[in-house]
Design a protein around this nucleic acid. Sequence first.
RNA 1: GCCGGGUUGGCGGAAUGGUAUACGCGGAUGGCUCAAACCCAUCUGUCUGAAAGGACAUGCGGGUUCGACUCCCGCACCCGGCACCA
Length: 832
Amino acid sequence: MPRDQIESDAFVGREQYDPISVQDKWLPIWDELAPFRSGNADDPRPKKYVLDMFPYPSGDLHMGHAEAYALGDVIARYWVQQGFNVMHPIGWDAFGLPAENAAIRRNSDPGSWTYENIATQRASMRRYGCSFDWDRTLNTCDPEYYKWNQWLFLKMFERGLAYRKDSFVNWCPTDQTVLANEQVVDGKCERCDSIVTKKKLTQWYLRITDYADRLLDDMEQLVGAWPDKVLTMQRNWIGRSTGAEVAFEIEGRAEPVTVYTTRPDTLFGATFFVVAADSDLAAELAAGTSAEAEFMAYAESVSRVTEMDRLDAGRAKTGVFLQRFAINPVNGERIPIYASDYVLADYGTGAIMAVPAHDQRDLDFARTFDLPIRVVVQGESDPIETGIATADEGPHVNSGPLDGLGKTEAIEKMIELLAAQGRGHATVNYRLRDWLISRQRYWGTPIPIIHCPTCGEVPVPEDQLPVLLPDASGLDLKPKGSSPLGAATEWVEVACPKCGADARRDPDTMDTFVDSSWYFLRFVSPRRDDVAFDVEAVREWLPVDQYVGGVTHAILHLLYARFFTKVLHDLGLVDFDEPFRRLLNQGMVVMNGSAMSKSRGNLVRLSDELATSGVDAIRLTMVFAGPPEDDVDWADVSPTGAKKFLARAWRLAGEVATEPGIDPTAGNLELRRATHRALHDASTAVAAFRFNVAVARLMELVNATRRAIDTGCGPADPAVREATEAVAIMLSLVAPFTAEEMWERLGRVAPVALAGWPTVDPALLVEESVTCVVQVAGKVRHRLEVSPDIDEASLREMALAAEPVQRSLAGRAIASVVVRPPRLVNIVPASE
RNA sequence: GCCGGGUUGGCGGAAUGGUAUACGCGGAUGGCUCAAACCCAUCUGUCUGAAAGGACAUGCGGGUUCGACUCCCGCACCCGGCACCA
């Protein structure tokens, strides 16, 4: 290589890598090539489905989107390089409150705001180089989509899975609408942080509790494929407990009252009885007694207590003695009945037997009201003295036939005894409640039910779907506690489909979580207007091979989507019962340890970062920052470093001095080994979501190639081309623009995305020589360069002969020598 | 309280029971340059030592093992979930 050639290469090395012009260059070409189109029916490649949780179109993309889509893209692009036909669709979760609030503010309609934002996000995603299949977009606010929400609702209605009931519901006073249990966080509205109150309303529910066992048990399939954290959260949320129902006779009442308990073995210790203050039963028991007035006042005060206050752990127990008595079925004791708000009306049967010695809440209540406390399970301490309820395993005392038994046997025995008398049986209970889906807002899917004075709840006939939202103009969208749709007279007033009489449409809209509970199915056939989804295409593409999204949806969305899938399975529309085979929860992008927000003043604008560093550098920064599930602290990472690395990789492509297609087998062996090692390690790492490690291996290869060009085999060695092409292909998962530009500079034809992952030659994964460490008593004292296939005996001999080894043995006798060719020898000296 | 996850250099983080600290950020020194930037090279856990080397280090304390960041037992702290759910 002549001196001036090297200098001119060095000059090329110093030309500026300009990521922005590279982006502008490739975007229109990619539009043309559409490498990620997945809908070709003749495509022979095996299929994979990669799905990013679709965004809510609240404005332009932000740093969080940038991270999530960078990670999803690595997986999608990796599988494309591995020869799969990858469906990687995107859509918009486009119904919801922010659009309505924006419309009120701007005095326009929610639709125009929403569609403007969708257009903005779509353009940003394209510029971000997302490998989406643009033929498969969907918006949940399109009638073509929400028609199928209505259809699914009617299918559930037919099966009794959608029903109306009257009960106390969570009410957000700011948004002026009801909330599902899942949307109440720490007693506050998860959306606006207002303190949630209770309101008695008739609302639509989906019977998710019918599926509680399956939602719980089917998680077995997901162990190892979903983060443990998410599985745990779902298990906690479902909250299955096993126990027994026990019937108590009530003096002066014909029917007994059943209670639920997880500790039927403590029945002999039940010294009083409590019913939920807000239950119908409490009102009935109080009626006509001398306690009625006191109870009414108490019940009234309870209804004013917010969820927030109710959850306060240190709150003193309150209640009213109802002047009534229950009979303990095992010993015939008369025990007083109280009403209190520490018993929940909607869990179990809304009534409990109180065992103060062994339940802290009951003990607190007993001490407040001076009620008797009877120990029936021998414990370490005495609850009467300590005020701390005990929960020991036994043995039982003061419990007749249970005396001497441990907890498990005692529970069994008690259930037997109760069953023999027909007064009880084993049962299970769940923390999970049915899913309240009615919302008193405009921008959502109308509930396709017509209320007729004579026929009741009448489903809108299927051929009349969709029930379109009426035009928002002329409607008052301001929150006022009842649905804005109720005021759309012409829309609301319809003839009953059954009898033709004057009737009214249900004025509420559906919770937007309904929309996202099945959108992953719609992507297989987003333009079909005759079915919700093509059943045959679903069979081919689903379940989703890889789902990617934030842990914020660990309970809500994922539980609902699993529920819908099981319902669809029972309807015979899908043949699987879990929708997402693998789940990756990416962390958040934070700044200086806390979530970015305008008010905190630590907001980093994605558009600024893209302008200074370029798309690829931002994507690389996100991917390389650490394990994907960890938060990325923008203060800890270096987009500048990422940009430098990309320039370094790009420069290699300009220096390769051989033609495309040259046979690499004659090339420099050391560099070839590095190339194949990097390809192998990077695929393993990507498959295990260890993207940061894959990038590290790629950086090593770039470093090795740099060295080979500068001080090794030189740019004309075929191995340099092989290495640089491998760099471009690996880089295409993370930094598609730079990779494409490199590919072109290498004389190859775009798109690099379809280049295919190079085949790894296993022979090149074997090193020429390896470093063997020699330990004395477990401490490294010497290193030997040996052949990888060295035999045990000669390795042992070499190790023992080495001077530093002898020195540290210092004449001590050798007790044993552990030889693990070719990497390690450990010499264990005899102890003194 | 119950359940899950974590604790490795100045920082982000690597490590099938076998070379702890890969890769990068930051830092130092040198080269290139009139100079700076860019780029390139070398060094960079702590202590000790002129050096060779040695000692100590993966939250703390034990254990198993020839060998432990990795497995087991106990503890501390941090993060997340559930929690008046009987």
